[in-house]
Design a protein around this nucleic acid. Sequence first.
RNA 1: GCCGCGAUAGCUCAGUGGUAGAGCGCAUCCUUGGUAAGGCUGAGGUCCAGGGUUCGAAUCCCUGUCGUGGCACCA
Length: 864
Amino acid sequence: MARYNPKETEPKWRKAWADADAFRAVMEPGKPKYYVLEMFPYPSGRLHMGHVRNYALGDVIARFKRARGFSVLHPMGWDAFGLPAENAAMERGVDPKAWTYENIARMRAELKELGLSIDWSREFATCDLSYYSKQQALFLDLYERGLVYRKEGIVNWDPVDQTVLANEQVEDGRGWRSGAIVEKRKLNQWFMRITDYADQLTDDLASLDRWPEKVRVMQENWIGRSRGLKFSFDFAPAAPKGFEAGLEVYTTRPDTLYGASFVGIAADHPLAEQVALKDPRAAAFIAECKTGGASQAEIDTAEKIGFDTGLKVTHPFDPSWELPVWIANFILMDYGTGAIFACPAHDQRDLDFSRKYKLPVKPVVLPPGEDAATFDVGDEAYVGPGVIYNSDFLDGLDIEAAKAAAIGRIEAQNQGEGATVYRLRDWGVARQRAWGCPIPVVHCETDGVVPLPKSALPVALPDDLEFGKPGNALARHPSWKHTTCPQCGGAATREVDTLDTFVDSSWYFARFTDTEAAQPIDKTAADYWLPVDQYIGGVEHAVLHLLYARFVTKALADDGQLRVREPFAGLFTQGMVTHETYRRQSGEWLEPHEVEVIVEGAARRARLLDNGADVVIGDVEKMSKSKKNTVAPEEIFDVYGVDAARLFVLSDSPPERDAMWSNAGVQGAWRFVNRVWEEFESQPAPNTEEAASRGGDGEAATAVRRATHKLVKQVTEAIDSFRFNSGIARLYEFLNLLKANPAKGASPALLGARTEALSAFSRLIAPFTPHLAEECWVRVGGEGLVANAPWPGFDPALTEDAVRVLPVQVNGKRRGEISAPAGASPADVEKIVLDDPEIARRLEGLTIRKVIVVQDRIVNIVAA
RNA sequence: GCCGCGAUAGCUCAGUGGUAGAGCGCAUCCUUGGUAAGGCUGAGGUCCAGGGUUCGAAUCCCUGUCGUGGCACCA
């Protein structure tokens, strides 16, 4: 008997799919559509196990939906602009474009080896002129709608990558790629008005019922909508210059206004700067605030410090009540108005500050059950519910009513109004990099910033960029930027900034619906295919990419270019692929293939393959180059075949959790592949006589038939609910059942049942191990490709057993079992139970209080 | 600090009110012309802890412990 040979069969079937053009997506009116998309890869040049898992997961869905009769779109492309290409150019003197396209070629070959059901005719890279020129047209559309603008602003500057970063790209005060401490710089910058959509982006999260709750919460927190009151304090006696209108503050707790203790402003507030001009001590204090570290740990532990400006403001509800104005280091200029009123009794930060500087602390919210005469806050601010007191006209109200009343009074006094404030800032989209989509705008001495007309597109990148030194190679190109102004015809220079690569990825899913269209987006194709029914990728994009894509989709919908207002109806965030780590005694990391793991009973140890030296087995961690705990997919494909690798990453754990790669695990999957093939080979080739005898009686045949129908049901449900690992577990079990009912010596009835079973089985494994499935499908006499075969159905009647074995409990303890027909009435079952001699023996001397029969499940007798 | 998630066999995980399961690993035995293999059989579990609801709890509720992810001086 021939061992299953993936090296022969796998390429053969990939060729068969390509020859048949099996995965071309076609718009078919009257047929339900399904758009499956995995987050497209950055062409780093190497496929890693994370990719294998991501694309295998998507492929299961795509193949399953195809078999279920959907018209499926499952495309692939490349997120190809970005810094790594420029870094490679700088380090190795290669051309970023050539480097990128070579990487794409290599990764495409590796991806194709995975046997994915992808429509490769739609492939594109974001660095293709045919893509980014369309993006330039979209940029102009958004510019025209006022959603793109330019302003001087303080930006995050990454000194290592020499570029501006969006807020979302700064983590703990460091650049998300370089890890360098981010500096604040004042620059002219391009922004997209994502804040215009802050409300929609928050509200529409509720409609994304097939998104993980976790991601929705993260986006909601990121947008950070809060409702409160903006109002101005009047100065007493006289306002400083420029503040005649008062000092504007924002609060979410207007109900606690009578607990006010002081007013605080950020160190970089304009008023603080003005005070510093006259008072050197204030200037020194502000300088001190700026020396604090940027990392989260430093911010957390930073002590609250303040400086009394000597200025006073009057309380809005009592002109005779004066409050001091302090500069405080814990107030942020870029949130709200950069100024607050402090109510220490009900805000921990204000309380810490007030205790330190001996400022008054007056509680105004009385917790339930406390006595107004004795209640006091110690060192812990009270932020819970309660009744307002010590607060004049607000006394006796609950918190929500008091908020409304206070806002009403402020509005009546014309001192301010209820306001909604967001944490979200506008999206800075310009990058000072050459390997990106050029911004289609020129700078003219006469006309200023002038967008190009669409007829002047595309603005192509030059092919002869010099990457010898850091900085923007586009800016220092000798001729590229020199052009003429489309308005006055005079000399002008091109914008040398390029777009953030997150712009590239915020509409690519729409381009996939028609990659040939002259317009950026073909309305007919987009209306047919969008939204993406199932989007799959890493949770690390929960905020950045997924928020930008939602914003751009809404903006394009408002521009009439898209019908959908949300791009991704379903989102699945898969876990990472992890692996054990290994180190020498000296602490150096070791690659898995340098190590031999030895199992001794329950214990495991490891040694170096070279010289047998002891190796320390470390924690299981995400595969990473730095810890050397990676396994190259190519090497696995070579040894075990693609199907075994796919099967293992899919079977190991639930898709949303981390999957631990292990050699033993992939070997197990490989053994399964072989055992499956063995089972198909042991079955006599189908002929009409046997096909006619399908079904029939005989206990084994019936058992196999029932198990088959149950299996179809279980696997179908498992795939539908993204529990691929448990679907595969059922397939493992089922194979064991087939082995227990072998073809050798089987009755015609059993052979028939086996034929039915194997036919279903070959289709059920197709989403997971597509090559093996094709081979099995041929063996079982299937017509055409299993990739085109319909999903097996099941007979619900056959998924249930006719006779049930019911456990019998006495007082909750299992005391025996009885057999009863499925669906037997409680009275009938009770009779069977009470007639059972073993049960009767257990009940001797006891009085039966109650008999509980759960149909087809269990019987419990309560007795004393 | 706030919001999640998890804890079930040695490992990775199913099981969401009704007899505690799978794969891998481990052990015994068989096969030694599927052989960097295959097969039979088996051992192995206070379902994290405590309390509650229930005839009945791994499952529902409460409290706690440990691990893990995200957010965070956001007024």
